[in-house]
């Protein structure tokens, strides 16, 4: 293995009816990293995961997962991956423990090993006391954590997480991510995660791919992506700004733009901390007193808007509602 856990080349999926869900997507996920696919609902994230986990057949292109081709050797791919899907997949009529043990036997794990691992995983996700209850009695957060435990029973080298925190409250989301990071450190897993929570991609992703309308728009670490969008923003309040000062600021080679807004000076620079000293000295050279200075990094939201032309935050609320709604309907029918 050359350190590449996943290598997708020209991966494409056209659904019957001509819907182009994923459009010639290529990317590489390195071993041991957390790779986040960030994009709105319908961007093609779940379809990409479906193809990589061998449940959907690509219309074109292919991918290597753990060194195995997803089209030619799907059985080998299935052995090295763990999958936590967006939907709840546990059997509601069985207990949490039974569900994990069932998964273990589907992976051919010897019973005694499976028992130890199941108890360990249940302990880790905090479900030990609920393990003998039927899954239908679990809350949303408990079900998510059970799904995570089920996806880990085979100690996968590569873990796929499709919206692992969708529709959960803030505390539970943080707790789930704690588990994910712990697992990554403990087992050295490679993790491919899809999310439409910008903060999550920002905080936990080693690298982020922004995906929209089935295409990957850019890939990079959160910092790289932010720098591309415009770097850091320095806001100044001064005792007056003469034209000469503005020109002096513009002539600094770290400064990208200078703007006046509501009586404040907004300076965009590629690297804030290293630019501040020269900005301060340039202004002092012009005899201008700085009253306040603050610096902010661009948020993932700004990054996202600059790529897709719209905000993801506006959409996430309604999609969550849609998800909860779907689940409620499903349950009502059951």
């Amino acid at each position: 293995m050359s350190g590449e856990a996943i290598k997708a080349t020209g991966l494409t999926k056209v659904y019957p009816g001509g819907v182009l869900a994923v459009d010639h997507v290529s990317f590489t996920v390195n071993e041991g990293e957390v790779f986040a696919l960030l994009g709105p609902n319908g961007a093609g994230k779940s379809t990409t995961i479906g193809m990589l986990t061998t449940t959907l057949k690509p219309t074109d292109g292919t991918a290597l997962v753990g060194g195995h081709d997803i089209i030619r050797e799907p059985e080998k791919v299935r052995r090295v991956i763990g999958v936590v899907l967006q939907e709840y997949t546990a059997d509601e009529d069985l207990t949490g423990y039974d569900n994990i043990m069932l998964m273990a036997s589907l992976y051919g794990i010897p019973k005694q090993v499976a028992k130890d691992r199941a108890l360990e995983l249940l302990e880790m996700v905090g479900l030990s006391s609920a393990k003998d209850r039927k899954v239908e009695t679990y809350s949303g957060g408990m079900r998510r954590r059970l799904e995570l435990a089920m996806g880990l029973i085979n100690r996968p080298r590569i873990l796929f997480l499709d919206e692992p925190t969708l529709g959960l409250d803030v505390q539970t989301r943080a707790a789930i991510w704690d588990y994910i990071i712990k697992l990554k450190q403990e087992y050295g897993m490679t993790i491919l995660v899809t999310t439409h929570y910008l903060e999550e991609a920002d905080m936990y992703g080693d690298r982020v791919a922004i995906i929209d309308h089935g295409k990957i728009l850019d890939i990079g670490s959160p910092d790289e992506l932010k720098n591309k969008v415009g770097g850091d923003m320095i806001t100044l309040e001064t005792s007056g700004l003469v034209d000469g000062a503005q020109n002096a600021l513009k002539s600094l080679n770290q400064v990208r733009s200078v703007e006046l807004k509501d009586g404040k000076v907004i300076i965009k620079v590629s690297d804030g901390p290293s630019a501040i000293p020269s900005i301060v000295s340039a202004l002092q050279g012009q005899g201008i007193t700085i009253l306040r200075l603050s610096m902010s990094r661009p948020t993932m939201d700004e990054v996202y808007i600059s790529y897709t032309g719209r905000s993801l935050r506006d959409e996430s609320g309604s999609s969550e509602e849609a998800f909860v709604m779907r689940r409620t309907i499903r349950r009502a029918r059951a």
């Binding site: 986990t53 299935r78 991956i81 709840y88 997949t89 059997d91 589907l106 992976y107 089920m150 499903r330």
Partner: peptide, 13 residues
């Protein structure tokens, strides 16, 4: 419908 099948399809069964 309940997702169980999708999960099983990702296992080596």
């Amino acid at each position: 419908r309940l997702g169980f099948l999708n999960k099983v399809l990702t296992t080596p069964v």
